[in-house]
Design a binder for these strands. Sequence first.
DNA 1: CTGTTAGCGCGTTCAC
DNA 2: GTGAACGCGCTAACAG
Lengths: 336, 336
Amino acid sequence: MQKHQATIKEIAAKLGVSASTVSRALQNDPRIGLRTRNRVIETARALHYVPNGAAAQLRRHRTRMIGVVLPSLREEFFSMAITSIEDVLDAQEYTVLMGQSRDKADRERHIVLSFIRSRVDGVIASLAADTTDYAHFAELREFGIPVVFFDRVPPDFPAHRVRCNITDGVLKAMRYLADRGIRQIALLNGPDNLDIAKERLTGFLQASAELNLEVFPHFIKSVDLTEADTQAKMQELCANSPLPQAIVAFNDYVALDAMQWCKRNGIVPNQDIVFVSFANLPITTYMDNPPAASIEQFAGRMGHSAASILLQALNFSNAEEMPFQEMMFDTELRVH
Amino acid sequence: MQKHQATIKEIAAKLGVSASTVSRALQNDPRIGLRTRNRVIETARALHYVPNGAAAQLRRHRTRMIGVVLPSLREEFFSMAITSIEDVLDAQEYTVLMGQSRDKADRERHIVLSFIRSRVDGVIASLAADTTDYAHFAELREFGIPVVFFDRVPPDFPAHRVRCNITDGVLKAMRYLADRGIRQIALLNGPDNLDIAKERLTGFLQASAELNLEVFPHFIKSVDLTEADTQAKMQELCANSPLPQAIVAFNDYVALDAMQWCKRNGIVPNQDIVFVSFANLPITTYMDNPPAASIEQFAGRMGHSAASILLQALNFSNAEEMPFQEMMFDTELRVH
DNA sequence: CTGTTAGCGCGTTCAC
DNA sequence: GTGAACGCGCTAACAG
């Protein structure tokens, strides 16, 4: 049901001026007289004129649109990040296109390709759990579309990155536990292909060495972030002895799933096994028994920085690429 | 940093054929010979060709893009809905643009206008808490862009609607409470301008009459969905006597905020005051003391239906508008 | 201050 | 089966 859509030409005809005049008036070009401008704006409104973005882009080679791909909009970590991103970009009159990969590399690829088709000016991304091929991001480079990764950044890919000091965060968590006399600590990590998972492992091993903790092989598990897998890995973890006295979890959701498993298996969370996790999501404040502590990752700040870096990249000399920025945030331990 | 972007013209030049041939080959036009087609596809890939959506739209007057405006992506109710919407639309090769109004009418307006500028083929919406002016949606009609509202639908606006039987849901909740001997029930409702809030009130009054409950004036409060306002209204609610024995809350988040207030004020939730809410969000399964019961609203099904109706509208005769559909789902009470 | 001209990249006639 | 020519709606370059 295609109704009629007003164009600048019609406005021009109606007013007996040229299309360019209308175009200029609508963009507040200082060369247009106030009276003409007002007449144009008035009839534009009367005709329900809304500019056709596609036509504009075709000329300008810019869309003022930014694509954002995230694993999930449902996780508070990401919804907080996207909100900061929106705030920064909205202020500069950019429109944000969002896509959720749902932790599937294939969906991520499709989304990025649709961003290219829409010719977004830039992309902000946080990787899906199972992304190991970065061809779709390389494609963005072919098009000269700058990319900023945050939190879940790819290893060895030329791009801007915003992340936090995970390794140090794990250290903080382990020291906190050790200070309470806990010496048998397990790691319920995320997918191995994610840098942020590797860093948790690095931090875990470093901290174990520093604190003289024994590292039992069955204390280190990786989950694919689904509830089912977390349950399965908890089963494995607790099938062998010794049982861990504490578990450092990849993030709050993994911790919560693990804690659910405990409850169903006669283990009291934070009493029999102390949980420490990452993210420190607001939703946990509603819980009577959240993870004992969580490493704050500052989702908002990371989103803010990612968007700011992207804006810099967009305003950089359009002859060459801006040198890749690497921004690292410190974490903080929050005891609940 | 604008790099070079391949066009069909270049592919054509490279192959010594015309642009039309390339265009046809890429769209699997049966008239193009298999050999030519393959050569085209091959060099397209080699040149990293990605079609320019804007140029295509300019000719076709369709974008195969759908805009979705929601109050928040953070609330599980909406993130579940959007996921269903994506599933339905992805299957038909539509791209979904999302925007979150954050319950601000002004943001909602901007988002809808940006959808129009992008010339989306259709829109799915759930209203912001403070939207009382529907001009931006009327604008969509001017452009012949079909709209489907779900859950938070506007009163008296010509459009398709998908919702659930709230009035009956409240009735179920009140009967559940009455069956447990609870007779002093308060309503912690949402913004008055939302139909779904009005229906909760209607249901509340009907049920009170049916069950012979006394309705104390201070038992009926409306919140603007912010945590602060919920706290304030709880204060008011509990400042007068009698104290309610139970509270029916607008949704799980309002219930949780109210329960927090109780904890801070020496009232034990679900013991001193029993909470029943709407939505039945998965996140509550992680809680040791969630609302005692919740009215399941089937976010996924509503999203699915909204998307399906929109697809029907898009495939309808393009001479006229499809008659407005009204779809109503039954609710179910879930005791926790 | 304003008009004219040209073309962005593509899909679609209409020819052959 | 394929090519030439046109135009979608808009902006930029060049005139005046």
